[in-house]
Design a protein around this nucleic acid. Structure first.
Lengths: 263, 263
DNA sequence: AGCAATGTATTGCCATCCGATACAGTTGCA
DNA sequence: TGCAACTGTATCGGATGGCAATACATTGCT
């Protein structure tokens, strides 16, 4: 995972306003991305490119602030609860999430299937909310979880609102690693889905992330018309014929997006 | 909101390892707590006690890192998406959340009512997960949302596992502001609930946070026996007699906690 | 026993952060 | 219309506070 490195102690990249210590500090928090447990000082130093000393000082500071805590067994450190305070502030103050929340709740009541809100972030769609259905059988997805833009109904819907050259650039940079045997990895096939979405106003994804799942996505444009997010409705193929699923939930999803935009 | 101030530029409080710039930076993110929209540099400076220059530099740095972004109308700044990456890493790496998640999902399937996981943080219970019920009618609670320990079933359950003197200290410092007409604010009444919970192994809260809601909470102890979290099951008083609710969900909740602990 | 990890503590040098101040562009009230 | 107050942005010399190296006490693995 090539990540920008703030360890260099040389010239501050011509940026007089840049606070190196802060960037280094944040890189410590980011070091936990992809970690599979607590991280020791040495591991943090290795992952961030910082010296052990720097890692020590930054970790020490985060501990005082509450963001990091020693792991229960005393070896290594973990992110701690104040992170969730930031989460809450972000979600609470995000105008889109704010407006979408009650509408998604109602949508969920009507369709009785899982409803998600995911935010568009270039290569990724990041889940900001998930309202699961009565019979949710899979592992609950955590807030902040993300999936590639290229293999979700919401991602296709988002791409259908982007100019072609941006779609090309996105696909060119995409990893296109299949998550299920049926995940589309051929750019042409994905482009076909995007084209269908451009006409229908929604995208339908079959077993792209999870076997047995059908998902319908509709993109949400921002004030400037560029897509910023998407809502998904997900159902089970054991209960739905895909076309029937589309017919029955597409209008509701479209209506929900309309109220989110106008709200 | 009395918050520790890292604006002082004097001696570093005898702490040679403390990285002031980092603490100041985090205080900028924390400035959004309780804000009701984007914050301007001046507002950030005011809320944190920093100079405008400091706020400028720190905000500038956060923008480069992605954590802050200009508000859509160009005035002020908001937290941005990378916050959710931290969220995800926290939830994903938290051993408790990790173990609890699938069990809560199954619990939710069995009781068919809303199921929550909240983490104990002294005065507060912070929601880490909420699995809503089929007929959820209220505003969806966002991750990171928190309520006072003193007025939730989970908080009572948690307190029932604390030594009396700690409960006293907690109650002494608590705000005890009622959220509904029926919220208990008398320490004696709260202590009575705690005592009942000590015997029953669970707490039952009637309309403490929301009118029409009954909630049953069971505390989750950590390895050292101290409570670290609680699960809640919440139902509607229009469908449940409180005692009937207790009888029917208490065993399931207790069983869920047992599997979380042993898992 | 010995080695390689942990996390912690101290120190002296100098780079980097610091705050004051100035500027350009909007909003909004008079 | 024009002043006043607010945005966000940019520059600069001085010294504070962050920097890396190094040493230490424990723990766990061979």
């Amino acid at each position: 995972m090539p990540r920008k490195n703030y360890a260099s102690n040389g010239l501050q990249a011509e940026d007089a306003l840049f606070v190196q210590s802060l960037a280094r500090g944040m890189s410590v928090l980011e070091a936990f991305r992809g970690a599979d447990g607590a991280l020791s000082l040495a591991q943090i130093a290795a992952r961030t490119g910082l010296t052990r000393s720097a890692a020590q000082r930054l970790v020490h500071t985060f501990r005082k602030l509450g963001y990091l805590t020693p792991a229960e067994d005393g070896r290594g450190f973990r992110l701690d609860l104040p992170i969730l305070d930031l989460t809450h502030d972000y979600l609470r103050l995000n105008p889109l999430v704010r407006r979408a929340n009650p509408i998604l709740l109602e949508l969920r009541r009507n369709v009785r299937e899982r409803v998600d809100l995911s935010l568009f972030d270039g290569q990724r769609m990041v889940y900001a909310a998930r309202l699961q259905s009565k019979r949710e059988t899979f592992f609950a997805t955590l807030v902040g979880n993300c999936v590639p833009t290229t293999c979700t109904s919401g991602g296709w819907a988002v791409m259908s609102m982007l100019p072609s050259d941006e779609v090309d650039a996105l696909l060119a940079k995409a990893e296109l690693r299949p998550l299920t045997p049926r995940t589309l990895t051929d750019p042409h096939a994905i482009r076909a889905q995007i084209e269908m979405c451009r006409q229908a106003g929604h995208a339908l994804a079959l077993e792209q992330i999870l076997m047995g799942e059908v998902a319908l996505g509709v993109a949400i444009p921002g004030a400037d018309g560029r897509p910023v997010a998407a809502i998904h409705i997900a159902g089970s193929l054991s209960e739905w014929d895909p076309e029937e699923f589309r017919r029955s939930v597409a209008p509701l999803a479209a209506e929900a997006v309309r109220s989110i935009i106008s709200g």
